[in-house]
């Protein structure tokens, strides 16, 4: 079992609904984000374009944040979700240094590390993550990448996909479709 996301930047409209739904689900303090949308512009007028990139934890197969965490506050679940337990976190920020994707922040309310945890509390109850539910264009796909029959596996296997910073060899499980190279 390997939960992952596929984010279709071909249909993403950069609306930030995912950002805000995530914030309301987790009551993320102002100024901090578990997921956010990056805007990148390129080209000269009139050949200008704008691309969006929806950023978040990659739930890496080989997660450096888990390795560095001194207290196992960050941990990888059997279903592939890289989850965290704020009650164990000492706030050393090692994970923030280990993550090559800037996915982690120290929550200003709890003073502990936090990041996208795949809405594990919802997934455990059979519910999609909040960002997936809200997305107007259904650009965020969720599911088991190991199950070749799943929608997400088919999407990822049958289309050209990218992952962020593959050279880091962390085995990201967020796959992007049609993301601009600059995003």
């Amino acid at each position: 079992m390997r939960y992952g996301f596929a984010i279709d930047q071909r249909t993403c409209i950069g609306c930030h609904a995912c950002t805000v739904a995530c914030k309301t689900e987790h009551e993320v303090p102002v100024g901090q984000f578990r997921t956010w949308v990056k805007y990148v512009e390129s080209g000269d007028f009139p050949a200008t374009t704008r691309d969006f990139g929806v950023m978040r934890c990659n739930h890496c197969t080989d997660a450096p944040c888990v390795r560095i965490c001194p207290t196992k506050a960050l941990f990888k679940r059997d279903d592939g979700i890289v989850d965290f337990d704020r009650a164990r976190c000492i706030g050393c920020k090692g994970c923030m240094q280990a993550c090559p994707y800037d996915a982690i922040y120290i929550d200003e309310d709890t003073h502990t590390a936090a990041k996208c945890n795949f809405c594990a509390h919802r997934v455990d109850e059979g519910l999609e993550p909040a960002c997936v539910v809200v997305c107007p264009t259904h650009s965020i796909w969720v599911g088991d990448l190991d199950d070749s029959g799943s929608g997400i596996a088919r999407l990822v296997n049958e289309n050209p996909v990218q992952v962020r910073a593959p050279e880091q060899n962390t085995g990201p499980n967020v796959f992007y479709l049609g993301a601009d190279r600059a995003v």
């Binding site: 689900e25 987790h26 009551e27 989850d83 337990d85 704020r86 709890t110 945890n117 809405c119 594990a120 509390h121 919802r122 997934v123 455990d124 109850e125 059979g126 519910l127 999609e128 997936v132 539910v133 796909w141 969720v142 599911g143 088991d144 199950d147 799943s150 929608g151 997400i152």
Partner: peptide, 27 residues
């Protein structure tokens, strides 16, 4: 929607009494 064993909303029959686990206390 019911994709890969995950649904996007609790069924209407549970709307009067829906239990959800505290996101902050998780796990």
């Amino acid at each position: 929607r019911n994709h890969e064993h995950l649904r996007n909303f609790p069924p209407v029959s549970t709307w009067d009494d829906h239990v959800e686990y505290d996101a902050k206390a998780h796990p």
